[in-house]
Amino acid sequence: MSERRDGARRTLVSARGVHVVTGRVPAVASDIDADDLLGTDAATLGSLDETRVASYLTARRWVRDIVTVRLRRPWSGFEATPRGVKPRLADSTLDVSIAHAGDRLVVGVVEHGRIGVDVELVASVFDQPSLVRRLCTPSERRRAGGLAPAERRAWLTQLWTVKESYAKALGAGLSLDFRQLDGAGLRHRDAVRGVLTPASGASHAKIAVSWVDAAPSCSPSPVRAI
Rank of each mutant, 00 (worst) to 15 (best):
Val162Pro: 01
Arg179Asn: 05
Ser165Asn: 08
Val117Thr: 11
Ala202Asp: 15
Arg141Met: 09
Arg189Tyr: 03
Gln128Ile: 12
Pro198Leu: 05
Pro149Ile: 08
Ser139Cys: 06
Gly185Asp: 14
Leu186Ala: 04
Gly183Thr: 02
Ala150Lys: 12
Leu181Phe: 04
Trp160Gly: 01
Gly146Met: 04
Ser175Trp: 00
Asp190His: 12
Arg152Tyr: 00
Gly116Tyr: 08
Leu121Asp: 13
Leu147Cys: 08
Phe126Glu: 01
Ala144Val: 09
Leu186Trp: 00
Leu131Thr: 06
Arg142Thr: 13
Asp127Gln: 12
Val125Gly: 02
Val122Thr: 15
Ala202Tyr: 05
Ala144Ser: 12
His188Trp: 13
Tyr166Gln: 09
Gly173Ala: 07
Glu120Ser: 09
Arg143Thr: 10
Glu164Thr: 02
Leu170His: 02
Leu147Gln: 08
Cys136Arg: 07
Val192Ile: 04
Thr137Gln: 12
Arg141Glu: 09
Arg134Pro: 02
Ala184Met: 01
Arg179Ala: 12
Ala154Cys: 11
Leu181Asn: 00
Arg141Tyr: 00
Phe178Lys: 00
Lys163Asn: 06
Ala150Ser: 15
Glu140Ser: 11
Gln128Pro: 05
Pro129Tyr: 13
Leu147Pro: 04
Arg141His: 07
Leu147Glu: 11
Glu120Phe: 07
Ser130Leu: 14
Glu151Met: 06
Ile115Met: 08
Ser200Leu: 02
Pro138Trp: 11
Gly185Trp: 01
Val192Met: 06
Ala150Asn: 10
Pro198His: 03
Ala123His: 15
Gly173Glu: 03
Leu131Lys: 02
Val119Asn: 09
Ser139Trp: 03
Arg143Gly: 02
Leu135Thr: 09
Pro198Asn: 10
Leu121Ser: 14
Leu181Met: 05
Leu135Ser: 07
Thr161Asn: 08
Gly183Gln: 01
Ser203Leu: 15
Leu135Arg: 03
Glu164His: 03
Arg134Glu: 15
Asp177Cys: 06
Thr157Asp: 02
Ala123Gln: 14
Leu176Asn: 05
